[in-house]
């Protein structure tokens, strides 16, 4: 038994030495993410425009990311960028950057995010592009916002893409939803003002406490064994830890109506006093999700199919990946890009 320990120890120390050597030679990480023209600013929100590379005439694509974490994940590095890959296909891309809410933003709610900011973004892009309709892609919580918008303003959305988006919060194995169910979010927000991003990160880590905790920590050296993998790993870590606080009111509303009330399915999700009805969506939908997603179970995303009308064209792309890997990993990204491209190009 002692030999096994010693061998494991020797292996781990070799990895440690290698990681130290790689880090000693690694230059500082260059901030290459989200370099684009800011075309609209509303409070903390900015709308970024990644101009299309070709001359193809087609409606622009608006990407609506979640309030949680930063959209930098979509443009993590030059060779790992969903935004740049779509741009390379000739798409005209607009990306919503929600910014970093501070205490003055604690009263900003879902009416503001969806009814005002997202609506203003769509209006702005329509005016700039000259198209009457835009294409909309929502990621995770941004997918919920996009579904809400497409159901309230169906005439403005030509095509819809939802990526790792929760829809039904009552499905089995939705640990995050189960965590929220009995928690007094209002009291929690009242005590903090806004919900701190670091607090949220800990909640996410608590969904897989060992694999995202000790096991990950113990395997750190293994992720830093050559400059390329080290750079990617460090960029990912930088992204994970770059978590904006969540505006207090929006957090309460999202927890109460979407999670606890299963609002999209029950029809109890309201924006500007109007009920969000998924059956009102007319845009053809491409729904992409990861079959190994521990944050949003596939069944939650797939519930979209039965929640819309049978007349609305609906396709799914299930990828053998987790929540982020579904659109970031080398294995899945090209599949995602091709599927989105095909979906948006179809007449």
């Amino acid at each position: 038994m002692a030999n096994r320990y010693n061998q494991a120890l020797l292996d781990s120390q070799k990895e440690l030495a290698k990681a130290m050597a790689v880090l000693s030679e690694l230059p500082p990480l260059e901030d290459s993410s989200l370099k684009a023209e800011v075309v609209l600013t509303l409070d903390k929100m900015r709308l970024l425009h990644f101009k299309q590379s070709g001359r193809r005439r087609q409606p622009p694509l608006i990407i609506c990311y979640a309030l949680v974490n930063r959209p930098t994940i979509l443009d993590l590095a030059p060779d790992r960028s969903l935004v740049q890959d779509l741009r390379a296909k000739g798409r005209d891309i607009y990306l919503i950057d929600w910014g970093y809410p501070d205490l003055c933003d604690r009263h900003i709610g879902l009416d503001d995010y969806i009814g005002d900011y997202l609506d203003s973004v769509v209006q702005c892009v329509i005016e700039r592009s000259g198209f009457e309709q835009i294409d909309l892609m929502g990621i995770c919580q941004g997918g919920v916002f996009s579904l809400a918008y497409a159901s309230l303003k169906p005439e403005r959305v030509r095509k819809l893409v939802t990526l790792v988006t929760p829809v039904d919060t009552d499905v089995e194995g939705f640990t995050l939803s189960e965590m929220v169910r009995e928690t007094n979010i209002e009291q929690l927000v009242k005590s903090y003002g806004n919900l701190p991003g670091q607090f949220l990160n800990q909640i996410y880590a608590a969904l897989k406490p060992l694999q995202l905790g000790v096991v990950k920590e113990m395997g750190l050296s293994r992720s830093i064994q050559d400059p390329t993998s080290a750079e990617l790993f460090l960029r990912m870590e930088q992204w994970i830890n770059d978590s904006p606080d969540l505006a207090g009111r929006a957090t309460i509303e999202f927890a109460e109506t979407f999670f606890k009330g299963n609002g999209l399915i029950q029809g109890s999700f309201y924006v500007d006093s109007k009920a969000v009805k998924l059956t009102s969506i007319r845009s053809p939908i491409l729904n992409i999700f990861g079959t190994k997603d521990h944050l949003v179970p596939p069944a939650s995303s797939q519930a979209l199919q039965t929640a819309i009308t049978p007349n609305t064209p609906y396709q799914e792309l299930a990828l053998p990946a987790g929540h982020i890997g579904a659109f970031i990993s080398d294995r899945c990204r090209s599949q995602v890009i091709d599927a989105i491209e095909t979906h948006l190009s179809q007449k």
Partner: peptide, 12 residues
């Protein structure tokens, strides 16, 4: 679920 929420609620 109750234990986890109870702890978070207590913290708030």
């Amino acid at each position: 679920q109750l234990a986890q929420s109870g702890w978070l609620n207590g913290w708030a």
